[in-house]
Design a protein around this nucleic acid. Structure first.
Length: 876
RNA sequence: GGGUGUUUAGCUCAGUUGGUUUAGAGCGCUACCUUGACAGGGUAGAAGUCGGGGGUUCGAAUCCCUCAACACCCACCA
């Protein structure tokens, strides 16, 4: 035999991947078939494959491979994301290692360095996806900074600006002092921290009185421009219209009144720092307060901060408290638990900062996106619970801060020609900008050197929100044949953590730019956790090396391992044992084929009855399973689909069908049976292919030499045929009889080589699947009409059948009696519960007819069984 | 502070508009078997008062209320 007894994935995986690629099976161009499209959630260009990617991309591959087999024009578009903050941070760090500071480089030099880095490491992850077996159309690979993608992003910015949806605003934004950029609200993570609440005394001007103010951020008093009380608060009523001295400064600020102040928090008296707090900013606008910004961009104190200039904000806090204590101005310090905003990327504490930024209005574009998910049902989410999350966010959505003070990204197409708030134009290039500026200013003498392009780039998500459109060039050329054919896509497979960052925004951009949803179904995967339930992360070091897993178990096994326990939206507690299970499964199928392949074929041999029975049963079993698999795919219950295929192959095909059909050792098999088995085996491979592409393709080609248009990857998914459930039920009964015989052998220690005789009580019907029972029970004769008299043996019952097997060994009647009594107790208890139901008048009058009939059938069945049992008992 | 989920066998989870024998699967566990596909195998078995309490119903793991534990999301109370 040439086939090795163990399946070794390592030797075949690259072979088949190359074969698929060479034959362009994954390539898709528009044709007259229906399209089935998935766009990949683009991983960070400098990222490496981790467990989350493996889960996410295995799912996409399973879905797209099945679609391909079902005859759709399947198109899976791969690509990577430039991930501006993350990548820029990596590059800055790398430069630092080489002793270079970002500030010492020009923008151009820095970008050159970043591109070198990207070209060197970028796309590694895409190669790793190939190892996993991902059937992407690699000719369509996109990068969010590709020139055409760049143009699309800029075009959208200009368009939205011209529609009045994008504006420049002077607002409090989330500032990351480490990355030196603003962040969107979604990029801020609130972490619970124990801080301190400082009670500080402010001297009232022209009085001996002091007011006490509670604050968590005493250093910001340098920027205080008012003190606020609640007009309904009797305690402070006398302070109306007065001023107070800001401690340590020589400034006096007004006492203002606003109902915003909570009377029972802190002291009921609030210091107002419009430059450094969102609420204070609002108060400041309402009451026309001065704004004093006391921080530099790195969160050190600036020249407004008196002696504290140059100090870090936390250092300054300590010093200020010390100085205040020296003046006796600190009344008390309490420990205080509160949530502190931190940067998702750098972990740095966010500084609310007032600055000019670019914003996208969201109230209009969010409307159709809400409608599509929550009302019209155009977009489905799996699991559905995420619709709630989505609704909540969408209904409370705020304008999106899209500018970032970074270099790595799409530079904002805004050109300033002066210092005024309105002294800018928005244009696709500097030349166009010049024309616009000349027109706007009526100054024909302007030159390019008078224009200064905005230094900032756009939020990464401002490019990825266009992804399903821009990968098909649908922004630049909205009528091109690709986008018209592939858009909208079918499925999006992603994590719930980016539902706001990305999913919601793609839906918004889809309706804005295509007047259509970007995808029909969203499958949210869970987080991959370790066995203890901890999130897998680099920091914890609990994440297995994805590629190493593929090396050890094979890509197919890892995919199976991941799929076996990952219901949509549920976190997945990853256990390497699951990969082992996948590997075992691969080996099982491998050996099933080895068995079949080893049979000698004979054209003249007759087909046995057991073979006929077995083939008839398995055909029905397969059809039933196929229906179940298809249904589960429709509901995105991928793990359920896989489990049913797993059981079909392992139990039904290997343990029952092959055992029934297997010729005796050295005996040949009938050629027709052999051919039928091969077809059945091929159909199994079809079902399994999306999950285990490499193994199945390998076996597919082992079976016979296939031409390049006969590869499994592009073969067909089985079509559904009717099945007879009666046949399936009867086979289940036959199995029970076989199990009974096996039990008997085990208890009597009778070897499987020794044939037995089986007697069936004078039952009106004959046993179903008699030949199968004889073969797998190793039975020489089946006789009806009850057990012979004066013969020792053991009886057992299956449904309404009573069976008897004679045995030479002396019967232990006590054991027998005990067994029957146990069965009897169960049966009587069961009968009682059924009778109780049927004697209940309200049940009989209220329950539907078919339910009552089921109960009646249960009752008559169990009564018969009780009679059988009692008869057996008295016979002993 | 608000919201959404979860809680079923040792572990991970199904249980699909309440009714198909007094709850299922995979893994694990136990016993035995196994030199003719596979020990990465086979056969069988044990194992759960469906988180607690209350209610609706002829009937509840499934619907309602309540309590508890856990998880996640959202939020500008200094």
């Amino acid at each position: 035999m040439e086939i090795p007894s163990k399946f070794s994935p390592q030797t075949i995986e690259s072979k088949w991947y190359e074969y698929w690629q060479k034959n362009n099976y994954f390539k898709s161009v528009p044709d007259n078939r229906e399209p089935y499209t998935i766009v990949i959630p683009p991983p960070n260009v400098t990222g490496v494959l981790h467990m989350g990617h493996m889960l996410n991309n295995s799912l996409q591959d399973i879905i797209i491979r099945r679609a391909r087999m079902r005859g759709y024009n399947a198109c899976w578009v791969p690509g990577t994301d430039h991930a501006s903050i993350a990548t820029e941070a990596k590059v800055v760090e790398k430069l630092k290692e080489e002793g270079i500071e970002k500030d010492d480089l020009t923008r151009e030099a820095f970008l050159e360095y970043a591109w070198d880095w990207t070209n060197k490491y970028g796309g590694v992850i895409l190669e790793q996806l190939k190892k996993l077996g991902c059937s992407c159309d690699w000719d369509r690979t996109k990068f969010t900074l590709d020139p055409d993608m760049y143009e699309s992003v800029i075009k959208v910015f200009i368009d939205l600006y011209e529609k009045g949806q994008i504006y420049r605003g002077f607002k409090i934004v989330n500032w990351d002092p480490k990355a030196q950029t603003t962040l969107s609200d979604e990029e801020v993570i609130y972490k619970e921290k124990t801080g301190k609440l400082y009670y500080i005394a402010y001297q009232v001007v022209g009085s001996n009185e002091k007011v006490i103010i509670a604050t968590t951020r005493p250093e910001t008093l340098l920027g205080d421009t008012a003190v606020c009380i609640n007009p309904n608060d009797d305690r402070f009523i006398h302070l109306k219209g007065k001023h107070v001295w800001v401690p340590l400064t020589k400034r006096k600020v007004p006492v203002i009144e606003d109902e915003y102040v909570t009377m029972d928090f802190g002291t009921g008296c609030l210091k107002v720092t419009p430059a450094h707090d969102l609420n204070d900013k609002a108060l400041g606008e309402k009451h026309n307060l001065e704004i004093i910004d006391i921080f530099n961009s790195d969160a050190t104190i600036n020249e407004k901060g008196l002696d504290y200039e140059g100090m870090d904000r936390f250092e300054a806090r300590k010093k200020i408290i010390k100085d205040l204590e020296a003046y006796g101005s600190v009344v008390k310090i309490e420990s205080h638990i509160h949530k502190v905003g931190t940067s998702e990327r750098t972990n740095e504490i966010i500084e609310p900062r007032l600055s000019y930024q670019w914003f996208l209005k969201t109230d209009n574009i969010s409307k159709p996106a809400i409608e599509a998910v929550l009302n019209s049902g155009e977009i489905d989410m799996f699991p559905e619970k995420f619709k709630n999350t989505y609704r909540h966010w969408m209904e409370n959505i705020r304008d999106w801060n899209i500018s970032r003070q970074l270099w790595w990204g799409h530079r904002i197409p805004v050109y300033y020609y002066g210092d005024g708030n309105e002294d800018f134009v928005v244009a696709v290039s500097s030349q166009k900008a010049l024309l616009k500026a000349k027109e706007k200013t009526n100054n024909q003498n302007l030159t390019l050197s008078d224009l200064k392009q905005d230094e900032d780039v756009l939020d990464t998500w401002f490019s990825s929100w266009l992804w399903p459109i821009s990968v098909f060039d649908g922004i630049r050329n909205p009528k091109n044949s690709d986008v018209e054919y592939y858009y909208p896509t079918q499925d999006l497979v992603t994590g719930p953590d980016i539902i706001f960052f990305w999913v919601a925004r793609m839906i918004m951009s889809g309706y804005e730019y295509r007047k259509e949803k970007p995808f029909s179904n969203i499958y949210f995967t869970g987080l991959v956790r370790d066995k203890k339930g901890q999130k897998m992360s680099k920091q914890l070091g609990n994440s297995p090396d994805a590629l190493k897993l593929i090396d050890i178990y094979g890509a197919d096994a890892v995919r199976v391992g991941l799929m076996l326990s990952s219901a949509a939206g549920n976190d997945l507690l990853f256990d390497e044992n699951l990969c082992q299970q996948g590997k075992n499964f691969a080996n099982k199928i491998w050996n099933a084929y080895r068995l079949i392949e080893g049979w000698k074929i004979d054209e003249n041999i007759n087909v046995s009855s057991s073979t006929k029975e077995a083939l008839k049963w398995y055909k029905n079993k397969f059809e039933k399973t196929l229906v179940f698999v298809d249904e589960n795919f429709e509901k995105y219950r991928i793990s359920e689909a896989l489990m049913s295929i797993y059981k079909l192959i392992w139990e039904d095909f290997c343990s029952w069908l092959l055992e029934l059909i297997k010729p005796n050792y050295g005996q040949p098999i009938n050629i027709e049976t052999y051919n039928k088995i091969i077809v059945l085996f091929e159909n199994n491979l079809r079902l399994l292919h999306p999950f285990m592409p490499f193994l199945t393709e390998e076996l597919w080609h082992f079976i016979k030499n296939r031409k390049s248009n006969e590869a499994l990857a592009i073969s067909s998914w089985p079509s559904i045929n009717e099945f007879d459930s009666n046949t399936l039920e009867e086979f289940e009964k036959a199995k029970e009889v076989i199990v009974g015989i096996r039990n008997f052998r085990k208890e009597k220690n009778i070897s499987f080589k020794e044939k037995i005789d089986l007697f069936v009580s004078k039952s009106s019907s004959i046993l179903p699947f008699e030949a199968s029972i004889m073969k797998l029970g190793v039975v020489s004769t089946i006789s009806y009409g009850g057990a012979p008299k004066d013969v020792f043996g053991r009886s057992f019952r299956v449904g309404t059948f009573e069976l008897f097997i004679p045995s030479n060994s002396l019967e232990d009647s006590d054991t027998e009696r005990r067994k029957i009594n146990e069965e009897l107790t169960y049966a009587k208890g069961f009968l009682a519960s059924v009778e109780k139901k049927l004697l209940n008048k309200s049940f009989v009058s209220n329950a539907p007819e078919d339910i009552i009939n089921i109960e009646r059938k249960k009752m008559s069945d169990i009564k018969q069984k009780i009679i059988l049992l009692e008869k057996s008992l008295s016979a002993l």
